[in-house]
């Protein structure tokens, strides 16, 4: 009797242990984030101050918005390498249009343009069957070229206009970029969880043929996804223009890699079919805090780059299924 009891106990212990391992694997990014946050608070007295936290939030809102756009595309099994170019071209257009006196329409135009760019990528991927990697690589140089041609060398300052004032201000007591991130996240979560489209893109990433046979309009969904991604990258560009108070074609470098890193650290796989918004955002802020604490501790930027790479590899290994 006693033997059976202890055996049962051992079994249930085993079970809880395995459950725990699974839970840790599933929520790796959250645990890592908390650990890093606690570590940072002790490592540098400058970290846990209102000002610093505000800076981290402000700086990384833009990255997080890009990561959300990237996540949608990665869920379908695709990728978008042109994020940096979107940022670049949208910063230039936003400042340029405002300078031209288009007022609020400047924002509307840039939004429409970024959706249009995304649609082009989407059509290339879904209808012309160009690999996402290639299609968006082409978009990278096209958009960059457009930005330089539009900018013709000069920086366009928009200090004191409505847009920088709005972006650098607060909404409901929250810094505007952070507020925008919150709104975007809420909508993105809703789309992924509550709409047919959200379900559909997970299905497409999981097995596109099964999705098609289940009546999902794979091509249209793909185009929508790249368009949505484009819009969010464009939005990030607009926010950046507001923060910089000017348009310049020298920004945007490396944004795609940060977005991909956040998505992957947040538990998505590039094969598609998985990924969550909250974890992606935490992934983005994890990277942000990491950079922040290294800056505060006076670590030079080259070691920072190395550590960033190491983190990505660890995250991917931790997320991998056995």
């Amino acid at each position: 009797m006693e033997i059976t009891n202890s055996k049962v106990k051992e079994l249930s212990k085993n079970k809880t242990k395995e459950k725990a391992v699974e839970w840790i694997k599933g929520n790796f990014v959250i645990i890592a984030f908390i650990c890093l946050f606690v570590y940072a608070s002790f490592a540098s007295p400058a970290f846990l101050t209102v000002n610093n936290i505000k800076t981290v939030l402000l700086q990384n809102s833009i990255y997080a918005i890009c990561a959300i756009g990237m996540l949608f595309i990665v869920i379908t099994g695709g990728i978008d390498l042109s994020v940096g170019s979107y940022i670049c071209v949208c910063v230039c257009f936003t400042a340029g249009f405002i300078q031209d006196g288009k007022g609020i329409w400047a924002i509307v135009f840039v939004a429409i343009l970024s959706i249009l760019f995304g649609t082009i990528s989407g059509v290339l991927v879904a209808y012309a069957k160009v690999a996402p990697f290639i299609a968006t690589l082409a978009m990278t140089t096209i958009l960059k070229g457009v930005a330089y041609m539009y900018q013709v060398g000069q920086n366009r300052r928009i200090d004191g206009t409505f847009w920088p004032i709005f972006i650098q201000g607060n909404v409901l007591g929250i810094p505007t970029p952070v507020f925008i991130l919150i709104v975007v996240s809420a909508i993105a979560i809703f789309i992924l969880k509550k709409t047919k489209y959200g379900r559909g893109i997970y299905a497409i990433g999981g097995n596109a043929e099964t999705a098609r046979l289940a009546g999902i309009n794979v091509k249209v969904y793909l185009v929508c996804t790249y368009a949505l991604g484009g819009f969010l990258f464009g939005l990030a560009g607009m926010i950046l223009a507001g923060r910089l108070s000017m348009g310049t074609a020298t920004v945007g470098e490396g944004y795609e890699l940060d977005a991909i890193a956040s998505v992957v650290v947040g538990g998505a796989t590039l094969a598609g079919g998985v990924g969550s918004i909250p974890k992606t955002i935490i992934g983005a802020f994890l990277m942000g805090i990491l950079m922040n604490i290294m800056n505060l501790m006076g670590i030079a930027s080259y070691p920072q780059m190395i550590l960033k790479g190491v983190i990505i590899v660890i995250a991917v290994l931790a997320n991998r299924e056995s």
């Binding site: 997970y202 299905a203 099964t210 098609r212 046979l213 999902i216 998985v274």
Partner: peptide, 16 residues
């Protein structure tokens, strides 16, 4: 093309 094996039973059942 019948299933998405990496997804749950729920997900697969309601897909169509």
């Amino acid at each position: 093309n019948g299933l998405i094996v990496s997804k749950s039973i729920i997900f697969n059942t309601t897909l169509a």
